[in-house]
């Protein structure tokens, strides 16, 4: 289903968990919504969970990489988490290595990387 993606706010962190296939238009809207949310809430970190993606083409990869760089300009560090092996292999084979973007295995790791400690 193509629909909207909720942007969750936990303290100064924004969490974007994309569980559906993105059309090009939705991907662009999403980028815009995230940047607006950063401005509105004054966040310091952004975690984008892409566990739900079973493939990522250069268009979506570019949007993700750009969002990360734009967020950095606005003072927010981004971590992309949960990339599947198939997606990583495909992107690298296409020559798209997403330099300058940070990655973590899962949400837990991603938040840890951003300096959050989740109480257990």
């Amino acid at each position: 289903m193509i629909g909207s993606v909720p942007i969750l706010r936990i303290g100064r962190t924004l969490l974007l968990s994309i569980q559906l296939e993105l059309s090009d238009a939705v991907a662009e809207t999403l980028q815009n919504d995230v940047l607006l949310a950063i401005e509105k809430h004054g966040t310091s970190s952004l975690v984008i969970d892409i566990t739900g993606f079973d493939f990522v083409d250069t268009y979506v990869a570019r949007i993700l990489a750009e969002t990360s760089k734009m967020a950095r300009l606005m003072g927010t560090e981004t971590v992309i988490v949960g990339m599947r092996p198939e997606v990583a292999a495909t992107l690298v084979r296409m020559g798209y290595t997403m330099e300058g973007v940070r990655f973590a295995l899962d949400l837990d790791e991603g938040l840890g990387l951003l300096g959050h400690v989740i109480a257990r």
Binding site: A89, V92, A104
Partner: peptide
Amino acid sequence: TTSAVRLLG
């Protein structure tokens, strides 16, 4: 391979 490993975190 290294680049892909990095994408996984």
